[in-house]
């Protein structure tokens, strides 16, 4: 791999993503764990930039850091003993086997062309713009049906949440 801006960026964002993930599982402090999670998600947003998908990068930051992580922080702040978690996780061996298996599957999926070609040459020269993404989402030949289905699902989830949270007496 030659040393250029993209490879340096890849290394930096990998450090963010993996280091953040490591921080999440090792810290004894729930609040710091959430901050580490944000660091990890930020690294993923960096990958999207490297892949010429700035829209997805912005959405990653907006949705995952701006909304979901903030919500997690809010929930964490409402719990007791945020700072010193006493409980230890004991099922280390099953977790180790599961994560190793997942890693191997991903490694095989990336290196061996099971799901189609994965050589660097197969990446097209043409890079789709945000405009193409928008058009594809509402195009009949594109992804309009999955897009609408996802919208309906989210709306249903929102209505469900409001229904559950609603005060019966109000």
């Amino acid at each position: 791999m030659e040393l250029n801006a993209i490879s340096i960026g890849f290394v930096v964002f990998s450090i963010f993503t993996l280091g953040g993930g490591f921080g999440v599982v090792t810290t004894r402090n729930l609040f710091q764990g959430t901050i580490w999670l944000m660091v990890s998600l930020f690294g993923v947003a960096g990958y999207f930039i490297l892949l010429s998908a700035p829209f997805l990068a912005a959405v990653q930051i907006l949705v995952y850091i701006g909304a979901i992580a903030i919500l997690i922080i809010f929930a964490v702040m409402l719990t007791r003993s945020v700072a010193r978690i006493k409980e230890r996780y004991i099922r280390i061996l099953p977790s180790f086997i599961a994560s190793l298996a997942l890693f191997l599957i991903l490694l095989l999926g990336v290196t061996i062309p099971i799901f189609g070609a994965h050589s660097p040459e197969s990446i097209p020269e043409y890079v789709a713009s945000t405009r193409n993404l928008g058009t594809a989402l509402v195009d009949e030949n594109g992804f309009v049906v999955p897009f609408l289905l996802a919208s309906v699902l989210l709306t249903a989830a929102m209505i469900g949440a409001i229904f559950i949270a609603r005060d019966e007496n109000a």
């Binding site: 944000m38 700035p54 829209f55 912005a58 959405v59 930051i61 907006l62 850091i65 701006g66 909304a67 992580a69 903030i70 922080i73 713009s129 945000t130």
Partner: peptide, 16 residues
């Protein structure tokens, strides 16, 4: 290309 969205995304760091 995503200037307006960038503005909103960056603002969420202020909240954080």
């Amino acid at each position: 290309e995503i200037g307006a969205l960038y503005f909103v995304a960056i603002a969420s760091f202020g909240t954080l």
